[in-house]
Write a protein that binds this DNA or RNA. Structure first.
Length: 669
RNA sequence: GCGCCCGUAGCUCAGUUGGAUAGAGCAGCGGCCUUCUAAGCCGCGGGUCGCAGGUUCGAGUCCUGCCGGGCGUGCCA
C-alpha cells in the first residue's frame, strides 16, 4: 500500500519507509537507551555457518558456536544463579547420602524454592527457603534439612559460611571474590550492562500519546508520553525491536471544530459551541493568517483542517504559546518512528475495505439508519458499537479497526497501546473487532495507566482543551529549568515524577507545588550521585590514578554490598521490561544512589578514596600511597557509574557529568 | 446495576511467582561542612497494611463479602 502523503507534517516520517532515517536524524545522540546492536555475540559464526563451508568445518564451527554460547550463558549467570546451583548440588549430595528421606533427589521436583536477598543484612548476603519448601516431600523437619544443607555447603568456592535461621531458612555469606567478580562483569559489559542482546526478542509496535492534534501537550498526556517512551526503551533493552507510533486523529468532528475555532479567532468571533478557546488558538490563527490569508478567508475547509493539524504538530516557530506537539515531546525526550494519519486510512480506502470484511463475516448490523459492529456472543463487552453514524459518516471506531488491521498486517509480534484509564472500555471493543476479522487478537496488549488529577494549591482544577485552561508540559518544564538553572532539568524532573509510581496509581499533580518544590525532586539526588562519581574519576585521572588491576583489595563491607546490588540490576531491568513497569528501574537507581551516598559520606576522612591535598603536596607521595587499593576502588566506582548511567538512560533521564553547587536558597527568614 | 483500577506512616508512594521484625521520599525534631561536590550524611519519633471472614507451616500479597475513592458503561475520540 504505497501512499502519497499530502500533509506537510508527513514529511517528517509518516510512513515506515522513511521513518528510521528521519527519526535517527531527529534523535540527538543522547538516545543511549536506543536499539543499537550491541553484544554481537556469535554473529561471525552465524555468518560462516550460513556459507557453503564443507561439512566438517561446519560441524566444528557449530561446536565452537555452542561453546561460545555456553560461555556467554555462564557469563550472564547472576550471582543468585551461581548460588542456586551450589545449593542444588549440595542437595544432590544430601539425596545420595540418603538425607532427604525416601523421596531422595525427587524431593526437589516441582518444588518452588528461592535464593534471594534477605531484607536484613544480619541474615546474610543471600538466603534460601529450600528446606521449608521440600520438607513435606522429604518427610523431615525443615530445620533438619537446613542443618544438613549447611554441612554440605561448607568449603565451597562461592559460599563462605551458612547458618540455619528461624523455621528453616539457610542464611549464606559469600566469599568477597564473588562480589569482586561482579565488578568485573559490569566493566566488561560496559554500555551493554543490563541489556539482552539486541534484536533477539519480538517485533513490537508501541502506540502512545496519540492525543488529538487540537491542543498542546498537557501534563496528562505527558504521563502517557513518558510511560510509553520508557516502556519502549525498556523493551529495546530487553532485546525487542521496537517501533514507536503516534496515531494522529486528523479527521472528524474535533478537528473540524478546532479549525472552525481558529477561523473564528482570526475574525475576532467567539468559537462555535463545541469549539476551542485557548490562547494557542488565537496564536495559530494569527500565524496562519500571516502565512496564507486565503486559508482562513473562505478557503477550502479541508485545507484549513489540514493546515491546523500540521501546525499544531509542528508548532509556531519561536512561540511558547504554541510550541507544537512534536517539539514538546522532543523536549520530554520522546520521539516517534511513525506518525500515522487517520485520514490516510480513508484516502487509501482501508476503512471501507475492512468494513466489507466485517460485513462478509456477518459482524455488522443496521439499526436506526446507522451501522453497528455486532459484539460476539459471550464477549466481555456485549454492546453493539457504531461504525457508521446515521449521518453517513464513519465513526472513529471504523478507522480504528482499519488502523489495527493495518498494524497487524505489518507483521508485528505484539501491538501495545498505552491508554489512560478513561479509555479502558475501548480495549474489549478492539479485541472483539480483531477476533471478528480473524486477526491475531492475542497480539494486542493494552497498557493502562490511571488518570492525572491536576490541582492548584490543593484545589481540583478542571482542565479541558475546549475551555482553554490546560496545563502544558512546556510551562512546567520551563519553570523547573529556571528554578534549577539548567536546561533539561524540567524534563528529568517530570519524567522522574511520573515514573516514581506505578501506572496503576492515580497521580495528583499540583501545579503550584510542582513549581515551588521542583528542587526537592528525587531525580536531582540521583543525578548528584552520578556527578559525584564522575568527579572522583576526574580527580583521580588528574592525579594519574587509574581504575583497574586486581580487585582483591576491595573488602570494605559496604563496597561489597554495593557490588552485590549492582548484580541485581539485570534482573531488575528484565522484570521491569516484562511487566512494563519502568518505576522499578527508578526505585532501583534511587536505592543505589542512597547506598553509595551514605557510604561515601560516612567514609569521610577516615579512609579517603583519593589522597588529600596535604598528601599530594609532598613530592613522591605515590610511593607511600596504596595505589592497588585505589585502582580497585576506582574500578568499583566506575562500575557504579555505569549502572547509574544505564539505569537513567533506560528511563530517559540524563546522567550529568557534573552538577555545580545548588542555586542559592532564596528564602530568608 | 455491571466491568476495570486503587485503599500501606501526617502527605506522596514502593513492597519481586505468599517468606523472617512492612520500607523510602517529603514534612517534624536533634546532630555533622578549615569540602576526594552539604543537591550530602547520621540519629529520633511516627503503622489495627480500609473492614470482616477464608486458604496454609506463613497473607500487605491469593479467594469471598462489605465500606470508601477513581474511571468506564455516548451515533464523543
Amino acid at each position: 500500500m504505497a501512499c502519497a502523503i499530502s500533509e506537510p507534517w508527513a514529511r517528517w516520517g509518516c510512513w515506515r519507509g522513511w521513518s528510521r532515517r528521519s527519526s535517527s536524524f531527529l534523535r540527538p545522540a543522547a538516545r543511549s537507551a536506543g536499539g543499537a546492536n550491541r553484544r554481537a555475540g556469535d554473529a561471525p559464526c552465524r555468518v560462516l555457518l550460513a556459507s557453503l563451508a564443507p561439512l566438517g568445518l561446519r560441524c566444528r564451527l557449530l561446536r565452537l558456536r555452542n561453546a561460545l554460547r555456553q560461555r556467554q550463558k555462564e557469563r550472564e549467570m547472576s550471582l543468585v544463579d551461581h548460588v542456586r546451583e551450589a545449593v542444588a548440588s549440595a542437595l544432590g549430595e544430601m539425596a545420595r547420602a540418603g538425607e532427604l528421606g525416601d523421596a531422595g533427589a525427587g524431593a526437589l521436583d516441582g518444588a518452588t524454592w528461592l535464593v534471594e536477598r534477605p531484607k536484613r543484612a544480619e541474615h546474610g548476603d543471600l538466603a534460601t527457603n529450600v528446606a521449608l519448601a521440600i520438607a513435606k516431600r522429604a518427610g523431615k523437619p525443615p530445620r533438619a534439612i537446613a542443618e544438613g544443607l549447611v554441612r554440605a555447603l561448607a568449603g565451597g568456592t562461592v559460599v563462605a559460611s551458612a547458618e540455619v535461621a528461624g523455621p528453616g531458612f539457610v542464611n549464606l555469606r559469600l566469599r568477597p571474590r564473588v562480589f569482586q567478580a561482579q565488578i568485573a562483569d559490569v566493566l566488561r559489559a560496559g554500555s551493554a550492562w543490563g541489556r539482552a542482546p539486541a534484536a533477539t526478542g519480538e517485533r513490537v509496535n508501541i502506540e502512545f500519546v496519540s492525543a488529538n492534534p487540537t491542543g498542546p501537550v498537557t501534563v496528562a498526556s505527558g504521563r502517557n508520553a513518558i510511560l510509553g517512551d520508557s516502556v519502549a526503551r525498556l523493551l529495546e533493552v530487553a532485546g525487542h525491536r521496537v517501533t514507536r507510533e503516534y496515531y494522529v486523529n486528523d479527521r472528524g468532528n474535533q478537528v473540524r471544530a478546532f479549525a472552525q475555532s481558529v477561523r473564528a479567532a482570526s475574525e475576532g468571533r467567539e468559537p462555535p459551541e463545541d469549539g476551542y478557546r485557548g490562547a494557542y488558538v488565537a496564536e495559530l490563527a494569527a500565524w496562519l493568517k500571516a502565512l496564507d490569508p486565503t486559508l482562513l478567508a473562505g478557503g477550502d475547509p479541508e485545507t484549513l483542517d489540514r493546515a491546523c493539524v500540521t501546525w499544531m504538530l509542528r508548532g509556531v516557530p519561536g512561540s511558547r504559546t504554541l510550541p507544537g506537539i512534536r517539539p514538546s515531546l522532543a523536549d520530554l525526550g520522546v520521539y516517534f518512528d511513525v506518525w500515522f494519519s487517520e485520514d490516510s486510512l480513508y484516502r487509501w480506502g482501508a476503512v471501507p475495505a475492512v468494513m466489507r470484511r466485517l460485513e462478509d463475516g456477518g459482524h455488522l448490523v443496521e439499526k436506526d439508519g446507522a451501522l453497528f459492529f455486532k459484539a460476539p456472543d459471550g464477549a466481555l463487552e456485549d454492546k453493539d458499537r457504531v461504525v457508521r453514524k446515521s449521518s453517513g459518516e464513519w465513526a472513529y471506531f471504523a478507522s480504528d479497526i482499519a488502523y489495527f488491521a493495518d498494524k497487524i498486517g505489518r507483521g508485528y509480534d505484539r501491538l501495545i497501546n498505552v491508554l489512560g484509564a478513561d479509555h479502558h472500555g475501548y480495549v474489549a471493543r478492539v479485541r472483539n473487532a480483531l477476533t471478528a476479522l480473524g486477526l491475531h487478537e492475542e497480539r494486542f496488549e493494552a497498557l493502562l495507566y490511571q488518570l492525572v488529577f491536576i490541582t492548584k494549591g490543593g484545589e481540583a482544577l478542571k482542565s479541558s482543551k475546549r475551555a482553554g485552561n490546560i496545563i502544558t508540559v512546556d510551562e512546567v518544564m520551563d519553570e523547573i529549568d529556571e528554578a534549577a538553572g539548567r536546561k533539561g532539568a524540567g524534563r528529568d524532573a517530570l519524567r522522574f515524577f511520573f515514573l516514581s509510581r506505578s501506572a496503576n496509581s492515580n497521580v495528583e499533580f499540583d501545579i503550584e507545588l510542582a513549581k515551588k518544590k521542583s528542587l526537592d525532586n528525587p531525580v536531582f539526588y540521583v543525578q548528584y550521585g552520578h556527578a559525584r562519581l564522575c568527579s572522583i574519576l576526574r580527580n583521580a585521572e588528574a592525579l594519574g590514578l587509574r581504575a583497574g588491576g586486581d580487585l582483591e583489595p576491595l573488602v570494605h563491607p559496604d563496597e561489597l554490598a554495593i557490588a552485590q546490588k549492582l548484580g541485581d540490576f539485570p534482573a531488575v531491568v528484565a522484570e521491569a521490561a516484562r511487566l512494563r513497569e519502568p518505576h522499578r528501574v527508578v526505585f532501583y537507581v534511587q536505592e543505589l544512589a542512597r547506598d553509595f551516598q551514605s557510604y561515601y559520606t560516612r567514609l569521610g576522612d577516615t579512609d579517603p578514596i583519593l589522597p588529600r591535598k596535604s598528601v599530594t603536596a609532598r613530592p613522591g607521595w605515590e610511593a607511600s600511597w596504596n595505589v592497588p587499593k585505589t585502582g580497585a576502588r576506582l574500578a568499583w566506582i566506575e562500575a557504579i557509574r555505569v549502572t547509574y548511567a544505564e539505569a537513567l538512560g533506560m528511563v530517559g533521564v540524563t546522567a550529568p557529568q557534573r552538577m555545580d553547587r545548588p542555586p542559592e536558597e532564596a528564602d530568608e527568614a
